[in-house]
């Protein structure tokens, strides 16, 4: 992959945004990567994509984030994008319980199509809609514990928790990777044609993260 000189990074991690239609996946992405929010953004057709680099434990980590369409109809197509992903933000809308009920189905999607060690973070978005809260924090938290997921509540609208969510999942992926200290052949990890995980110190890294 051709890389601009001003965008050097130590690690490139692929992260997918999944969850029901209308929960705010695209706005989480635009808030994180461009600090933008659109109350009425267009629905995502197929996939969209953006990158952003962050610092974690002294390393520059470039996140390659794939935003997928939420409608069930598109799952056959979007699940192809799970390949090579080391992290997933599974998003629901705290004001619509139905979107939380579907979280289990999304976990199954990940089990079926993603790498076994993918780091998953459950994200309750639209936390600004306090008066319409339909999914209690405790309920979501115990679900997350039960399924070994990280958990956070965010608001793409007022920015609450957005940077923290991405920072946490990327740091977690990095730590797991360092802990394992695997130096597998990067080709084995496969999947990210556009940008293999590159360690600029000269070592190839296994892109796989691990479940927390």
């Amino acid at each position: 992959m051709a890389t601009r000189v001003d965008e050097e990074y130590d690690y490139l991690f692929k992260v997918v945004l999944i969850g029901d239609s209308g929960v705010g996946k695209s706005n989480l992405l635009s808030r994180f990567t461009r600090n933008e929010f659109n109350l009425e953004s267009k629905s995502t057709i197929g996939v969209e994509f953006a990158t952003k680099s962050i610092q974690a434990e002294g390393k520059t980590i470039k996140a390659q984030i794939w935003d997928t369409a939420g409608q069930e109809r598109y799952r056959a197509i979007t699940s192809a994008y799970y390949r090579g992903a080391v992290g997933a933000l599974l998003v629901y809308d705290i004001s619509k319980h139905g979107t939380f009920d579907n979280v289990e189905r999304w976990l199954k999607e990940l089990r079926d199509h993603a790498e076994a060690n993918i780091v998953v973070m459950l994200v309750g978005n639209k936390s600004d809609l306090k008066q319409f809260k339909a999914v209690e924090t405790d309920e979501a938290m115990s679900f997350a514990e039960q399924h070994n997921l990280a958990f956070i509540e965010t608001s793409a609208l007022d920015s609450t928790g957005v940077d923290t969510a991405f920072q946490r999942i990327l740091t977690e992926i990095y730590r797991l990777m360092s802990r394992r200290n695997l130096a597998a052949d990067e080709a084995q990890a496969g999947g990210i044609k556009a940008g293999q995980t590159i360690d600029l110190n000269g070592n190839s890294k296994d892109k796989k993260g691990g479940c927390c």
């Binding site: 057709i45 197929g46 996939v47 197509i77």
Partner: peptide, 20 residues
């Protein structure tokens, strides 16, 4: 060579018939 697949962008072109 840059890893861009047609399905990644043309899916929308064919799904929304270029309206977007």
């Amino acid at each position: 060579s840059h890893g861009v697949e047609f399905i990644q962008f043309a899916f929308k072109w064919c799904n929304c018939l270029l309206v977007r």
